[in-house]
Simulated scan of single mutants.
Amino acid sequence: MMEDFYCDEVLNGKTQVKRVLETENVLAYYHTRPYWPIHIVAIPKRHIPSLITLEESDNDLLLELFGVIKKAATMVTEEHGACRVLTNLGDYQDSKHLHWHIVSGEKIR
């Protein structure tokens, strides 16, 4: 299994994605293999392994990331009535790159 799908594939352009929102340091796009009917992933463009590895020097990036997550969550909630925002840690985190899922609907797989 790939260690960092986001750096290795998405940010390098090897895997094309449908962008939802983008800032200088953050990208949000529709998941390439969704687990929910609406499934957006938000990632920092700089490699950060996980939520628990964030440093104090990452605070500005984290604020930018949460701004994008908030906008995506607002869009999904307005269109679909509800959403979940989640991240995984440890063994639950397949790709070792900080990422957040903004999802809506019943899990499809």
Rank of each mutant, 00 (worst) to 15 (best):
M1A: 06
E3Q: 12
E3M: 10
D4F: 03
C7E: 14
V10N: 11
L11C: 11
N12D: 15
K14Y: 12
K18E: 12
K18R: 14
L21S: 01
E24G: 14
E24F: 13
N25L: 07
V26G: 08
L27I: 02
L27M: 07
A28G: 13
Y29K: 08
Y30D: 10
Y30A: 06
H31S: 14
H31V: 07
H31N: 15
H31K: 03
R33Q: 11
R33W: 06
P34S: 11
Y35F: 11
W36L: 09
I40D: 00
I40V: 15
I40E: 07
V41C: 04
V41R: 05
A42H: 03
A42L: 08
H47L: 05
I48R: 01
I48E: 00
P49W: 03
S50A: 13
S50V: 10
L51I: 12
L51G: 01
L51K: 03
I52R: 03
I52D: 10
T53P: 02
L54I: 13
L54Y: 07
E55P: 00
E55T: 02
E56L: 13
S57P: 04
S57V: 09
S57Q: 07
D58E: 06
L61E: 01
L61Y: 01
L62H: 03
L62F: 05
L63P: 05
L65F: 08
L65T: 00
L65Q: 00
F66D: 06
F66K: 05
G67F: 09
G67M: 00
G67N: 09
G67A: 02
G67P: 00
V68P: 01
V68N: 01
K70R: 15
A72D: 06
A72W: 03
A73G: 08
A73S: 13
T74C: 04
M75Q: 14
T77S: 14
T77H: 12
H80G: 08
G81N: 05
A82K: 14
C83R: 02
C83I: 00
R84S: 14
R84G: 12
R84Q: 13
V85Y: 07
T87L: 15
N88S: 12
N88E: 10
G90K: 12
Q93C: 09
Q93L: 14
S95R: 09
K96E: 12
H97R: 05
L98D: 02
H101Q: 04
H101V: 03
H101C: 09
I102E: 03
V103Y: 06
G105A: 06
E106I: 10
E106L: 05
I108C: 11
